[in-house]
Design a protein around this nucleic acid. Structure first.
Lengths: 159, 159
DNA sequence: CCTGAAAAGATTCACGG
DNA sequence: CCGTGAATCTTTTCAGG
């Protein structure tokens, strides 16, 4: 699917605030309600817009602490990997989970209320699956966090 | 603010899908529209719900590659730190930015289309501010990514 | 604090340019 | 592909238990 500048403008608005009425979005980008609405529909059908969600304040739901967990493993059989992915993905505290190149095999972002709860999480984690090497790095401060992806790369070259 | 089980149920639903009508949410949790709506209002007023946003598919907007960038710096003056925070936060490719404890001083999550574009981003970054040590780790696969925070820690003990 | 219904507003659709 | 206007459905407010 190709995204033109209108689509990009719509996405820019909706990434920041999905409560804005379609009529208002149209007004901002110079389009009337229906064509604007049709573009949004298409963006949803094509999966460019995956979902609309409420973003919560981590501190207000008592998960103000972020920990990055680096995992190195010696297992490489597919069976074990599938189980590993499944077990880890099921933890609600694990909000991001990447397979990495380089030194570390996997990187997790974990959210918990404090260090004590992280310790409890950690114990539960290692009790459920065997991990060769695990190292934890604590975030002291979240300086930036956004769900808005850059859209400069999404638009085709100007005609 | 204290969140009871009803609030938590509402948040669980809205974190996953913020398009569900209030009447439907009420039905699911056993509440009629008005009280459910009032609870949502309160959660927004109190900042528990920060915003409602559209979540996009990174690949479909051409930023399928995630890179974690670790930064160590020798500067510690407040002036320099403020500038550092400002300069980095302005990059739309930097979607997360943490001050860390331990080895590394800062950790970034950067999204770009591919390694070539990461190189361009990197050059731009180091041209704008002096960084003592920078190391990049590429994610090969995003196994899990969710904007839903765990809510088990948010609820007060059963009365 | 709750229920049920009415008013206000947004989304969706049929039709025409 | 864009726009206008009307029908439908949601949200929001209000009267009352």
């Amino acid at each position: 699917m190709t995204l033109d500048r209108m689509d990009r403008k719509i996405l820019e608005i909706l990434q920041e605030d999905a409560t804005i009425p379609v009529a208002e979005i149209g007004k901002r980008i110079g389009l009337s309600t229906t064509p604007c609405w049709r573009r949004i529909q298409k963006l949803e059908e094509n999966g460019v817009i995956q979902r609309r969600v409420a973003v919560l304040d981590p501190k207000k739901v008592n998960v103000g602490v972020t920990v990055f967990v680096s995992i190195t493993t010696s297992h490489h059989a597919q069976d074990w990997l599938d189980q590993f992915h499944g077990v880890l993905s099921a933890f609600p505290e694990i909000v991001e989970f990447y397979r990495m190149s380089g030194e570390v095999d996997y990187l997790l972002r974990v959210v918990v209320p404090d260090i004590e709860h992280y310790d409890a999480f950690y114990k539960k984690l290692i009790s459920q699956i065997e991990l060769t090497e695990v190292s934890s790095a604590f975030a002291m401060e979240q300086i930036k966090f956004t769900t808005s992806l850059p859209l400069a790369y999404a638009v085709p070259e100007p005609a």
